[in-house]
Design a protein around this nucleic acid. Structure first.
Length: 366
DNA sequence: GTAGGGTTAG
């Protein structure tokens, strides 16, 4: 068998035992230290969340290439093992290997999820030293990192200096502004983006919705809705529309979107329930809860939280107990996000002792 | 042989 044939065997491996078997065949075929084959192996172990095995592959190669190092850094970043990703980056540099633009995007992604701006600034210096500060992928990674860490000014500075911006760069900057204290600027940048001729994607809309919600810009929400229909955007946009209409106070439109979805997922249901709760329509929340139980749908935490909120608000202790029981059955009752509305529900229904008991129980668990 | 941006609650 030729090398490519082994590599082709790797992609269908969806579980560890099949991957280990292919790995064994690769070793027997004498490809255990081949550069491209080992990179593929690292990526395969990484997609099964097995950084440890990916790492042992890298360690078994005497002189791994930059591509292999990059894949290992990405593997750690993907698994939220930021410190390990940074360590890999450093030891790669220590060994005299030259990081490339891929290396930087992977390391910066790690800095973004760890909100580590100090390390991010050091990496940024290395990027500049190598003349990579205009690379569109690296710039986007930096913008994303600064936005997630709340430093909008630095993000904007990088964005404004970019000689060429693609749709992902625009989306990242708009996403940051949309969650910032200046949602109007997100709207303004979105318009600017359209003026450049860029065609908004579904993700562009998803990034803008939080700003629309906070400004309660119902007309804009309707225009985005129309655009979404024209572009035939999928379920995520419909779910976000339910949320945005509800947050703009238009529950009827939210419900219309919900009704027209062909195949609703758990997020559609929980968003609709949260939207009703947000607008004080508590009996509608509980109707949806009952409906979900009736047709035996998979219910997520957000649905349970909204149902608890509704039961508490209308002082329906029996219903509240029923939901609490269900939360226990789903093993989410000790989750802080769920435990708090459980206590609130009991307190609102006059069961202060029960609420206090639960509070003590949850404190003992800390 | 490896790239970046995403929906519900709080």
């Amino acid at each position: 068998m030729r090398k490519n044939a082994y590599i082709r065997l790797l992609s269908p491996c969806k579980n560890l035992s099949s991957l280990l078997k292919v790995h064994a065949r690769i070793i027997i075929a004498g490809l255990g230290q081949d550069a491209s084959t080992t990179t593929h192996l690292i990526n395969s172990y990484s997609s099964l969340q097995r950084c440890d095995l990916a790492r042992s592959v890298l360690d078994s190669v005497p002189t791994p290439t930059v591509v292999s190092w990059n894949s290992m850094i990405r593997a750690y970043s993907r698994s939220n093992r930021h410190q390990e990703a940074l360590k890999m980056y450093r030891s790669m540099v220590d060994r005299g290997l030259e990081p490339d633009r891929y290396t930087f995007t992977f390391v910066l992604k790690g800095c973004a999820s760890a909100l580590d701006l100090q390390e991010g600034a050091l990496i940024r210096r290395e990027v500049c030293r190598r003349g990579l500060e205009t690379d569109v992928f690296i710039c986007t990674a930096l913008i994303d990192m600064y936005c997630k860490a709340g430093d909008l000014e630095s993000a904007r500075e990088i964005f404004d200096k970019m000689p060429v911006r693609d749709i992902v760069a625009w989306n990242s900057m708009i996403a940051g502004l949309s969650h910032s204290s200046d949602p109007l600027e997100a709207l303004s940048l979105f318009k600017k983006m359209q003026l450049t001729g860029a065609v908004p994607q579904s993700i562009s809309l998803l990034n803008l919705f939080p700003a629309v919600s906070r400004l309660a810009a119902i007309d804009l929400c309707r225009r985005m809705h129309a655009y979404g229909i024209r572009m035939d955007f999928g379920l995520e946009v419909s779910n976000a529309l339910i949320d945005t209409y509800a947050k703009c106070g238009d529950v009827e439109s939210a419900h219309l979107v919900f009704d027209l979805i062909h195949t609703r997922d758990d997020v559609s249901w929980s968003t609709m329930m949260a939207g009703y709760a947000h607008n004080g329509c508590f009996s509608e929340v509980l109707d949806l809860y009952d409906k979900m139980k009736e047709i035996d749908l998979q219910m997520n935490k957000v649905s349970i939280i909204s149902a608890l909120l509704a039961a508490g608000d209308i002082r329906d202790l029996e219903k509240g107990k029923q939901i609490h029981h269900f939360a226990k059955k789903q093993a989410v009752d000790m989750d802080v996000l769920v435990a708090t509305p459980i206590m609130t529900m009991y307190a609102k229904c006059g069961e202060l002792e029960k609420a206090e008991k639960l509070l003590r129980g949850s404190q003992e668990g800390i």
